[in-house]
Amino acid sequence: MPVAPNTVQPAIEMQRVSFTYPSAPMGGVAQGPAIENVSLSVDPGERLGILGPNGGGKSTLLKLVVGLLDGASGQIRVLGRSPAEASRLGLIGYVPQRVRAELEFPLSVRQVVAMGASSGLSPWRRMPRERAAQVDRAIELVGAESLRDRAIGRLSGGQLQRVMIARALARDPKILVLDEPMVGIDVEGQRRFASLIERLSEEMGLTIVIVSHDLRTVATGCDRVACLHRSLHYHAAPGGLTPAVLAEVFSHDIEGVFGEVHIEAHRAEDCPDPGRHHPHACDGHDHDQGGTP
């Protein structure tokens, strides 16, 4: 899969981003930062897997990127814009981890997918024809045509996930981000999911970011992997993920040991051109392999 030329603006760019949740007022224990000093750059059309243990800050990172959380220090740009603006313009589609939606709502699959395309519409008019067509296209893309009129509460886990992906695709975004997409999905559903992601990436050129605690989810079908446990521990092609790196990322003793972004030194030789377009990625060292190994 070709990576866009160097002059192209990154799809997502994070520079020294840290985020701490506000602590609970009543006797809450002061919490450390959820993510700390993370620099990361995602190329247009790239498939990035973010791997890390539960509670390692993956979802926080994703929520910052889609504008669900704000107040992070450092800089986050999504196609050159702020996350909130990118969300409003429909540049980025988000598939949440667990669906916390109210599934007993009297809504059809078509209505739920159409919500994804609803922002910025005039309240006086019906949805314009082009947007409605994109909603139908999104439903077709995920193979949910036969479910169109089904009530949203009457879907299996895998079906619901596809509908949520369709909702994220309903405004024809440039970037798709998915939080733990494999959790609670059966084997058949996982197979369908993998081929869907491949199609979205190869046929439509979408930039795709998948967050998971499961190595298999990110190692197959991702161009690069970023390992996150509060800070970034690895950011390169999945081929270089050694047991040592994984042990480090998933170790619970790691907190407080690495305050700064830490990169395995031997990865530097993978980097073809250290001075490339995102000089701040990986703490000043670029470890982009530049494509699928």
Partner: peptide
């Protein structure tokens, strides 16, 4: 309720994720 039907419904259906869609 008429003018805000779309954002109101989106918020009501999916309070956690709606802001990622600009609602």
């Amino acid at each position: 309720m008429f003018l805000l039907r779309r954002p109101m419904l989106f918020w009501a259906f999916d309070e956690e994720a709606c802001e990622a869609f600009g609602t």
